[in-house]
Amino acid sequence: MSDETRRLLECHDVVSGYLPGVDIVRGSDLTLADGELVGIIGPNGAGKSTLLKTIFGLVELRSGSIELRGEEISNLRAHELVQKGVGFVPQTENVFPSLTVEENLQMGCYLQPGLFRERANFVADLFPRLSERKNQRVGAMSGGERQMVAMGRALMMDPSVLLLDEPSAGLSPANQDEVFDRIGKIKETGVSIIMVEQNARRCLQISDRGYVLDQGQNAYTGTGRQLLHDPKVIELYLGTLAAR
């Protein structure tokens, strides 16, 4: 496979932000290859989540480009991206709490209800616990289970790219382990993943490649293993976080 075809998503010199005149992401580059799991880590306020939301069209792109398989996607609306095979799991408010698990999944493939049966089986294989509780209201479920629902919902349209915004945030250690384990499984099914994480060490352990974002720019890039053992990265970004 040539390098060109392997490139699934490519962000170039992305500048974006919420308030007029205040850029959060300030010239960041990112590449996601087919089948790859890429982790983005960095200190609080580095612009990790903003970069992810920019890719999904939720934050205005001020300059730079975002391409999916060579096609510019920065002017597309969120649901158009969903149809193009991009799934997004927000950090908070990522489920419909008063809907049941099954209904949440139905909303996931709202545009193509025909996919439901097949995809629901796929999701059930990944998260067996969800199929046991498919008629339960998600609002009454634990944080770990909600995260499963959120990921399951995003997988319903059979995405080729999955964007995960801090999937382990707010979860108990046991639930975090489970979430990271499932993310690895999702990757094994061939879905390419970009994951933003606070838990930098765990993130890099399962990532093929990692980006360290600082003040809206790429500070370090490398394979997960390289970054985990880079003294600079350890000192600046992993040292305190690793003390958990």
Binding site: H79, E93, M107, Y110
Partner: peptide, 11 residues
């Protein structure tokens, strides 16, 4: 429940 998520789901 969640307007943004609904919109992102294509509703």
């Amino acid at each position: 429940d969640n307007r943004d998520l609904a919109e992102a789901s294509g509703i």
